[in-house]
Amino acid sequence: MPRSRPGLGEAPAWRGLLIGAALLLAAWLLVLPLLVLFVEAFSGGVAAFTAAVTNPDAAAAIRLTLVVAAIVVPANTVFGVAAAWCITRFRFRGRRLLQVLVGLPFSVSPVVSGLVWVLMFGAQGWFGPLLSDTGLRIVFALPGIVLATLFVTLPFVAGQLIPLMGAQGVAEEEAALVLGATGPQMFLRVTLPKIRWGLLQGVLLCSARSMGEFGAVSVVSGRIRGLTNTVPLHIEVLYQEYDIAAAFGVATLLAGVALLTIVLRAGLDLRGEALRVRGSQARLAVAA
């Protein structure tokens, strides 16, 4: 909204200077790294790029990353909905503790998030001797990668839903119950439609992170080529072998996922805003 009064920084010179400085800083600090990524990826031509992403080791890494995401995302989504339901809908002892635990993985270093599983299931870990008797491998194998990724991405869905459901309140759910809905009916027809955009955002963030996690996975994976290398780990291997163009070629796949996430989120944000506005109008209507 254009304003004619002399607000702070409203003089055209100030305005232009500040916007210019912000765009310049963003271009340098944020956009340049993305740009160099795509330029390097295609520095060897399209054929070299195609060869890098279709190479058997790359294909194995992509497959493993998708398998991990296919396990982790549904698990953390179900957990996220359950956690948001119990934390925002009920008051009970230990509620605060659950809330703190949900957010905890956010503030733990990725390396520590991997380390904890090595200390659990590694050869010198708490359950190491037990595991070596059964021959089951967790660390340096798929289960370890899944556990580390579960840990790192655990807060994403719950973190989106808890503030959203806390703000939404329970009036519609209570109305459904009074009108005779069963628990599952109430959840599927009232709660789920209310939270769907927030839920989708959480699933999106969780998916992107589960495919891109590097530190935690690198600690538990053992980097066995073609076997326990996920896409980010494969990028590291290529880079260390000075196969720079291939490293960036594979990296563009993950950058593509990241860009898609940002675009979809921006779209969902618009929806969410529209919904919030409509929601507050509805509340005003009820109050009047």
Binding site: A26, E40, F214, G215, F248, A251, A255, L259
Partner: peptide, 27 residues
């Protein structure tokens, strides 16, 4: 370009760390 700038702020949160690492190093 305001919406684009807003989206660019999310880049460091969305870009996998290893990808950011090799891009920054190459720069």
């Amino acid at each position: 370009g305001r919406r684009l700038l807003d989206a660019a702020v999310d880049l460091p949160l969305a870009l996998p760390t290893a990808v950011a690492g090799i891009a920054l190093t190459t720069l």
